[in-house]
């Protein structure tokens, strides 16, 4: 499956051709390679807290060459902790892209938007390309964009829930109102939901659990790749209007013909 070179995704001046971002955290390590080969993402996320610099089997050893690593700051509960993890990413040679995850609700793994905004400010000042994961909120997202976020990553539903675009309307407002790319992250459970997010105008989708918990993860990764391409193509083609029912008595019938 070739990617479309004429319609790149621009994140902080870096261009990507696949609009599917895959996670790496829920697989046996050897399977990551198969999933990435099947889904053909340009960007793969990884949890910094799980990267051990020494000794045992390392997740970095299982990610194919030529992919951009998007380390996340999961484990951080405050902005300063996200910055510490970002510096760790740099030391490990993971580059400057950081997905900011600041989570203070371990039950639902919901992001703390206030600390996340503070983290965007800290990380952009430190020269990182910051991609904040957040609970969709237009006002907060606007502040994050103003603070220098390279993209905003609102959740479609709580992480791991596979419930789809339950926050559809809030994400739609963000897509309409903000100039930065909107990447739907978390909650997407089916390729059709990824497709819908792309049709709405999302710039990319990030999927982990839906692929990892499928019976055949590589086949599901491929299905998501196809869905994302279909959704993007539909968005670019411009969706036709949805027909509305015509009332039997016209509302303007009182007007004469002259």
């Amino acid at each position: 499956m070739s990617s479309d070179n004429s319609d790149p995704l621009n994140l902080g001046g870096h261009l990507f051709h696949s609009r599917l971002i895959l996670g790496s955290g829920k697989y046996p390590l050897p399977q990551i390679r198969e999933v990435v080969a099947a889904g053909e993402p340009d960007i793969v996320t990884l949890a910094l807290r799980r990267v051990n610099a020494q000794g045992q089997a390392n997740i970095l050893d299982y990610l194919p060459e030529g992919k951009t690593l998007l380390p996340n700051t999961s484990g951080a509960r405050a902005a300063a902790e996200a910055l510490t993890l970002a510096h760790l990413a740099r030391e490990l040679g993971c580059g400057d892209f950081i997905k900011i995850e600041v989570i203070t609700d371990t039950k639902h793994l919901l992001p703390d938007n206030e600390e996340t905004l503070a983290a965007v400010k800290l990380l952009t000042q430190a020269g990182f390309v910051a991609l904040p994961y957040m609970t969709p909120d237009l006002v907060m997202a606007r502040k994050m964009a103003q603070a220098g976020a390279a993209a905003i990553m609102p959740l479609g539903a709580p992480i791991g829930s596979n419930k789809g675009l339950t926050t559809r309307e809030l994400i739609r407002l963000m897509i309409e109102e903000l100039d930065v790319p909107i990447i739907v992250d978390a909650g997407i459970g089916r390729p059709s939901q990824a497709c819908e997010a792309m049709e709405m105008g999302a710039s990319a989708v990030m999927v982990n659990t839906a692929v990892a918990t499928a019976e055949d993860p590589p086949a599901m990764a491929k299905a998501f790749a196809l869905a994302v391409r279909a959704g993007r193509a539909a968005y670019l083609a411009g969706l036709g209007p949805v027909a509305e029912a015509t009332p039997s008595s016209p509302l303007t019938g009182f007007l004469g013909t002259d």
Binding site: Y27, R49, R50, G55, A57, G75, E81, T84, L85
Partner: peptide, 16 residues
């Protein structure tokens, strides 16, 4: 753990 299709994880934590 591997025989059950799972991944042994040695490090899942960063002291912050």
């Amino acid at each position: 753990i591997v025989a059950r299709g799972h991944q042994p994880v040695f490090t899942d934590y960063a002291r912050l």
